[in-house]
Write a protein that binds this DNA or RNA. Structure first.
Lengths: 333, 333
DNA sequence: CTGTTAGCGCATTCAC
DNA sequence: GTGAATGCGCTAACAG
């Protein structure tokens, strides 16, 4: 049906040479009439440049990879990954760049991501959702492509990045609890291979230091694996003095809520709970969660802007950029 | 650093011609020694074929687009989209195909999806999460590429597809409620522009017909917009006889739970609630949701298999394929 | 089994 | 301002 139309045909239809047609299309020098004629021909024939040919000739793809070296299942559990990616995609499209989500093969996320990066010939890379133990550092070094991070990159990798101010997030959440007079604030974190978890914990500790209160028990749980409810139950069983929980995600907080209910402790009277993310979960559970909201879209835009600027203007913008978080107070604390 | 190495260099290093090198690499005819020599050269030089060049020469990309003509934000709220995509990705990688998630620009999802499809030169398309009002039918027709659907395609589009048996899902959920003696089963559905919603409702109606019970009031709500809680509250306020709710997603069911609580009705004693999806939400809320589970991974694999078979063997496999759902009984009904 | 040759569709020198 | 020529890196006929 739609046999592909080539630049040659456009040129012929417009009565010019192929090179003039090319210039007319790509904004090079050309007479007004030539441009008009070519434009008409393009419209009539429905010409759309062949990406492979263009890439080959230009030696660039105008594509940037969004990589998260994990199984898609794991990526998508992140409650705001969609918002991040929407913002990134929008920003990239604006800059004439095409976002390419590197979809890993769940059977071997790291290997398939490597394969993707090797074969995909993108112009730049945006890394999100990075585990520091993902063995991808080396690869990212080898590929010598512009690369930016959403979230602080692993120590030793001096790459441009933007991040939410997780230290501050952990701090305000914890301070909110301490200010209420809570004195045994337990902490449930995600995997500490993620910088976000480490930073939030640092904020938690700082709040305790400032208040002169001893930090409570802590439990580390991978974001996606393990049953949050069971973990929280163990926590509560282990220390009956606990009167508050700082959970590093709303889903962990939901687990804490269930554990509290199972243990016959009221929330927030007996135990106050603060979550993180301000996701849909926060208002689906009862009591609704007090939680830390991140400027997710802004983060996405900023990260995309980083790589877009580099690709378009040849130099990195200012970095790092830290975005403040905000405590959303509801019922659970 | 890593200046790209070409096939020419490999050929020279291996002491053969470029075409022999090409054959050796791509499994064409070649002597054992040639293959060995080329393999060594490839390894030593770290050769990785240029995708654009290969695409141009082969006239095919070995890429398949996964399209959902919506803002990424909307796509990612779907609780199991991650699992679907993981399964799809795995299946495609297995077939030597690279999944390309078409990330729309949230500012204009349909237009950017069209742009993507036009410029992206993929070999095939897998459509998921399709709204029947998305104006994409025409485009999909123009592009004459192999295209398959996950979820029943719009009427009039006779494309290969796989789907969950949503009629059955709606049926078992509703029957479960009716079998308990509930007689006023309200229904909260997602947007009826989605075939899934229509089908689930059909199942709901069938169960009523078989039981000789009059269908209860219904409310239609887009999956992502509108506050499920408020809608459910209106529903309850409008009809005090309601003793059960069939919600077409767990997130809608969570709203129903909140509305019930706000109205002072106990669940499941006064009002039974059944959700749909068996998502994380189902066990985060209290009471835990009785819900309809779909064989999500199987759906993804089957859909990917459809397009992979077509691309690899030139013909469509058997379709449509319907996958049964399963009622997961917990506390809410 | 191998090398030579000729494109794939486009951008981009370079003369004119 | 324009066209002719050249090459991007690879595959696939085609002879040998």
């Amino acid at each position: 049906m739609t046999e592909p139309v080539t630049l040659d045909q456009v040129a012929r239809a417009a009565g010019v040479s192929r090179s003039t047609a090319s210039r007319a299309i790509n904004g090079g020098v050309a007479s007004k009439q030539a441009i008009a004629a070519v434009a008409r021909a393009v419209a009539e024939l429905g010409f759309v440049p062949n990406r492979a040919a263009r890439t080959l000739a230009r030696q660039r793809t105008d594509q940037v990879a969004i990589v998260a070296p994990e199984s898609p299942t794991a990526i998508f559990v992140d409650p705001f990954i969609g918002v991040v990616i929407a913002a990134v995609a929008h920003c990239l499209w604006q800059a004439g760049l095409q976002p390419q989500l590197a979809l890993a093969d769940p059977a071997d996320p790291v290997a398939s991501t490597k394969r993707f990066l090797h074969h995909s010939n993108v112009d730049g890379i945006l890394v999100v959702h990075f585990h520091h133990d993902s063995c991808l550092e080396a690869l990212l070094g080898e590929l010598d492509l512009p690369i930016a991070f959403l979230g602080r990159p692993p120590a030793g990798v001096a790459a441009p990045y933007v991040d939410a101010d997780n230290v501050q997030g952990g701090y305000v959440a914890t301070k909110h609890l301490l200010d209420q007079g809570r004195r045994h604030v337990a902490s449930i974190s995600g995997s500490l291979t993620r910088s976000a978890a480490v930073d939030r914990r640092a904020g938690y500790l700082r709040a305790h230091r400032e208040a002169g209160v001893e930090p409570g028990p802590a439990i580390e749980l991978d974001f996606q694996f393990g049953a949050p409810g069971a973990a929280a139950a163990r926590l509560l069983a282990g220390d009956p003095n606990i009167d508050a929980i700082f959970a590093q995600s709303d889903s962990l907080a939901a687990g804490a809520l269930q554990a509290a209910a199972a243990a016959g402790r009221r929330v927030p009277e007996d135990i106050a709970v603060v979550g993180y993310d301000d996701s849909a979960t926060a208002v689906q559970v009862f009591p609704n969660l007090t939680t830390v909201a991140q400027p997710v879209a802004a983060l996405g835009s900023a990260a995309a802007g980083l790589i877009a600027d580099r690709l378009r203007h040849g130099r990195w913008g200012e970095w790092p950029r830290l975005f403040p978080t905000e405590l959303v107070i509801r019922q659970s604390a």
